[in-house]
Design a protein around this nucleic acid. Structure first.
Lengths: 323, 323
DNA sequence: TTGTACGCGTTATCAT
DNA sequence: ATGATAACGCGTACAA
């Protein structure tokens, strides 16, 4: 593998001039530049990234941290990851996917999508030498990008209200992360605005985000209440609801309207296809990475944390109808 | 950021001894080692990967090359990618996702899943300084991993034959890649073994792997032939077939049995759920990466190309039944 | 067991 | 516009 010295020798200049052609071409005379470029071509010279990184004190590497649950099984995180990867690779930044912060490993930046169970994230400002971007609301003084959960479910609930539904339930599940609570807030906000008192039995929390669990709950609720609309904290929950309705011979959407949340594939697996609140997951991934790349390039100056809420989109399909 | 020299100073040894603790801990006296480890801890020392790479002439980087079509929109490639990423990251090898081979960029190895349209892959043995693993059958002297398409469809066809079907069609599509042809071969093999003459109108090639195209074709074929079983070159094709059957009031699986191929999500979106030939996509991704990592570690010795055919699994669901 | 000296390929600084 | 030199942090050969 040839080096700048080989190129320099062939072009009869010093290594420094070769380096200039690579980095500041306009600071080299056209004649010399042409000779050098030819030599580069002939020798098949490739920049040595390691050497560049060594002197630049950069690594060209970004860590992507996610919990074990956030894996290939989950199309949500795969899409997010694809978006991130897209932007990073555009910028020739390599990525390493990890399940913890791997503090012994130097990098130019980190995107944290989740941590290993039990690993609390404690980031203090400036504690990390390289920029960090979080997926999901985090500390006030750290950059993050999140979905606008409140507005998403608000819109979904309003959709049902507009269709004439009055008795609308919200099916949520337990989570240590705040997004489920936010979605509930969106529901409550829409109901309050419509002047409808939310009955306690309408807001049901289950342990798992899982269609079997959800189906069981739906059977229970549909038998004991008069709800005609159900807003779900996820498409998986909504899938369970459609299954329960089928078992009870309740027609969706004629007798029951159901709205999901996420829109990453499960929504299409339900029968009927779900009306859902779609997250622009790939775009969110891209945004996370863009923010980080920007930080890496601007290097430390101007540390006002950037925090963005990405809007969702209500996709109306076949699981909702007029009351 | 501290270096081995800082650690050395604090531990009152030479930098060399620190380096030994990092690489060959057993060649250092326990006392010195303990002091050094404490110093590392106190200083928060992190190895400089760039410096290591520079001297080791390695990059710690692998390129993943895929075509534009193979993106986030496609769960197949995302899953494959997730498998690759899984193994590489386990081995602390960073990855860069590209749409061409980026020859100006040095790396320790490459996994090629596809190339930009029109970019022919011409790999000559030993031409590439770093190891390459291909997804899909490639040159004889290059490592590759592929799905066992022939056996996959053979099994699927045999499944229909075992259910008593005799007039079985194969719906394929055009592709510049050989896998569709291989799937057809599997179909023909099973039919031949069963002693059934394949009629020309049974093997239908469409331009696109697309459910709309496929639906149109299915309408045509179902109207003009007596087939009771259709083996499809992909789940997307099979999805189109179920849609056509619904339109013609042909019951799947009572009047028509349909088998798909892939098993990456679309199979669950069809109504009824498809019997399909499932590829272990994530595992294939892992295997690709494992092979590459092995090559990188063993560095050039023993260059017998490794070529693996990964078996598929027939998943019987609701789209096939006895004739 | 431990240390010295040098090289890896590039770039920044300072000179010419 | 161009070049000489040092420095980046680590590993390896060799020496002690």
């Amino acid at each position: 593998m040839s080096t700048i010295y080989d190129v320099a020798k062939m072009a009869e200049v010093s290594a420094m001039t070769v380096s200039r052609v690579l980095n500041n071409p306009d600071k080299v005379s056209p004649k010399a530049r042409k000779r050098i470029e030819e030599a580069i071509e002939k020798l098949g010279y490739k920049r040595n990234q390691a050497a560049r990184a060594l002197v630049a004190k950069s690594t060209g590497l970004v860590k992507i941290v996610l919990s074990e649950r956030q894996t290939a099984q989950d199309p949500y995180f795969m899409t997010l990851f694809a978006g991130i990867s897209d932007v990073l690779s555009e910028n020739t930044i390599a990525q390493l996917v990890l399940h913890d912060m791997a503090p012994h490993l130097k990098c130019d930046g980190m995107i944290i999508m989740g941590l290993r169970e039990g690993q609390a994230l404690d980031l203090k400002v400036g504690e990390y030498p390289s920029p960090v971007v979080l997926f999901g609301k985090g500390y006030d003084d750290v950059d993050w990008v999140d979905v606008d959960n409140v507005n998403g479910v608000y819109t979904a609930t309003k959709h049902l209200l507009d269709l004439g539904h009055l008795e609308i339930a919200f099916f949520r599940y337990d989570s240590d992360e705040p997004y489920v609570k936010e979605r509930e807030d969106g529901y409550r906000k829409a109901m309050a605005e419509a002047g409808i008192q939310v009955k306690p039995e309408w807001v049901v929390t289950d342990m798992e985000n899982d269609s079997v669990t959800s189906k069981a709950r739906a059977l229970r609720v549909l038998r004991t209440t008069n709800v005609t609309g159900i807003v779900c904290a996820s498409d998986i929950v909504a899938l369970g609801v459609t299954q329960a309705a089928k078992e009870l011979n309740i027609s969706v959407p004629n007798q029951l309207s159901v709205v999901g949340f996420d829109g990453v594939g499960v929504d299409m697996m339900a029968d009927p296809r779900l009306t859902t609140v779609k997250q622009p997951v790939f775009e969110i991934g891209r945004r996370l990475a863009q923010l980080l790349v920007q930080r890496i390039k601007q290097k430390q100056q101007n540390y006002q944390a950037v925090q963005e809420l990405i809007p969702t989109e209500l996709i109306v399909r076949d699981s909702t109808a007029k009351k």
